[in-house]
Design a protein around this nucleic acid. Structure first.
Lengths: 208, 208
DNA sequence: CTGCAAAGTTGCACTCACTGCAAAACTATC
DNA sequence: GATAGTTTTGCAGTGAGTGCAACTTTGCAG
């Protein structure tokens, strides 16, 4: 939880950010996303409204609370993968790593978010819209590994497939969480991997 | 252009809607999306601000101007396809049909949108967020044809792949429009069809 | 043509997300 | 404990978006 070389300042910042994220999710789950104002969230987290916007560019962003370093981290991971790993596998691994990490740190928040996102599925799409800049970063990493020219569709498409997989997995998981979210995302990515041209067979507990 | 059984009222509505869409795209391309206010758009189209919001729920929506009947139309088309057509093919055809239609009616607008979307790629993502409700509709249609239970990932994933394909295709087409947008979308969908596990070969004018 | 009902338009008042700026509070460092 | 760098905050303002009630236009029937 608390890093070694972390100053008081950094610790406070992390705490405030986390408090705002928690407050947003908690209140939204309780009262419904658009019956909660930023003012209330800020009050709940004991900071001013202005400070809320120092941490998050929008209410949407605070609800999802995406780690701004996740994008760069994934890109690095993709580039660092061994040579015999395909770009697809590298990207798949980087996604699953982030997700398991996230769930280990904040599983409870995702259980609350689930309810909010079931009411407002568009918020999940918007969350990815906010990080549209990072898509470019990831696409470059994939493209580099794949040895494809900047103009090729494949990298962009693979990255977009990742968002789509995550999004669909959450929606699906929200309806029935008997399979862990990470596993559903994995299944979704595998479907993208083998192709959607043909309808997959419908077998029960398909975790892998 | 003008339908047969269309009253004066309906004609006026269509004209107003089109005028608002045009004004939004034109001004956004000219000055940049967020240096244009709804007030200016409404003025350009000779209606009140309030009327703007009678036609579009948000500025985003007006920029993309997605036909609200496109979703239902596609769903119908999917269900109406012959039995020997796979859900994938049926969905692919329904997308391409809409796109060719749209480009035939408003190619000029897309040339302007291109510039706006290059500056603000997130707007394209947001556009799909707005029509997140229709995703459910399309997923049901796909699921029905595929004979899969409501809970299965495949329909949702296929539909999301469609959005992703369109989105990536537009981004790619914005950088280099030597290949028609419809063809790029087709290529993207084919990649999803055959699977992303392996990097595709890079051949030049791949229209089909 | 007239008058009535339905649909569309508008203005108004309001809420709320979000931004820039400058002052105040706080933390780190020497 | 003074000083420099960061973070927090208040304030004033912009602009998106909504509900409501009045007003205008269109459709239609007598």
């Amino acid at each position: 939880m608390s890093q070694p070389g972390e100053s008081l300042r950094d610790r406070k910042k992390r705490r405030t950010r986390a408090a705002l994220e928690r407050a947003t999710v908690r209140l939204a789950a309780e009262r419904g996303y658009d019956h909660v104002t930023v003012e209330e969230i800020a009050a709940e987290a004991d900071v001013s409204v202005r400070t809320f916007f120092n941490y998050f560019a929008s209410k949407d962003e605070a609800l999802i609370g995406a780690d701004p370093e996740a994008g760069p981290r994934m890109a690095e991971r993709i580039l660092a993968a061994p040579d015999d790993v395909t770009p697809f596998q590298a990207y798949r691994d980087s996604i699953l790593a982030e997700i398991t990490d996230e769930l280990n740190n904040a599983r409870d928040l995702w259980l609350l978010r689930k309810d909010v996102l079931m009411q407002r599925p568009d918020l999940l799409v918007r969350a990815f819209a906010n990080s549209a800049e990072y898509e470019q970063l990831l696409a470059s990493a994939v493209g580099q590994r794949a040895g494809l020219p900047e103009s090729h569709l494949y990298p962009r498409l693979l990255v977009a497939a990742g968002s789509a997989a995550f999004r669909c997995a959450v929606t699906r998981w929200a309806l029935d969480d008997s399979v862990a979210l990470g596993d559903v995302v994995g299944d979704a990515l595998d479907l993208f991997g083998t192709g959607l041209a043909h309808v997959p067979h419908h077998h029960e507990g398909g975790t892998s």
